[in-house]
Amino acid sequence: MAKFYDLLTTELQNFIEAQHIFFVASAPNDGRVNLSPKGMDALRVVNESEIAYLDLTGSGNETAAHLLENGRVTIMLCSFTEKPLILRLYGQGEPIRPRDAAWQEYLSLFPAIAGTRQIVRVKVESVQTSCGFAVPFYEFSGDRQILKEWAEKKGEEGVYEYWEKNNQQSIDGLPTRLLE
Rank of each mutant, 00 (worst) to 15 (best):
K3W: 12
E48D: 15
D6Y: 14
I86K: 09
C78N: 14
F80Y: 13
L77Q: 10
P98Q: 08
Y106F: 09
A101H: 08
I171R: 03
L7E: 14
D100F: 00
E69P: 00
Q169F: 06
E17I: 08
S36M: 11
E17P: 01
I16M: 10
T57N: 07
A102L: 05
Q169T: 03
R144Y: 09
A112S: 15
K148L: 10
E62H: 01
Q145E: 12
M1S: 06
Y138I: 06
E82Y: 11
V135N: 05
F110L: 10
Q145P: 07
M40V: 14
G39D: 08
E69N: 01
L56F: 11
N14V: 07
G158W: 04
A27P: 03
D6K: 15
L43R: 04
V120A: 02
D41Y: 09
E157R: 04
Y106M: 06
R99L: 06
D100I: 04
L8E: 13
G115A: 14
I119E: 04
S141K: 13
S79H: 11
L87V: 13
Q13F: 12
Y160G: 02
T63D: 01
Q92T: 14
R121N: 06
L109D: 09
W103I: 11
E62V: 08
S108Q: 13
P136Q: 02
P84Y: 05
R177P: 00
K148Y: 01
A112E: 15
E17V: 10
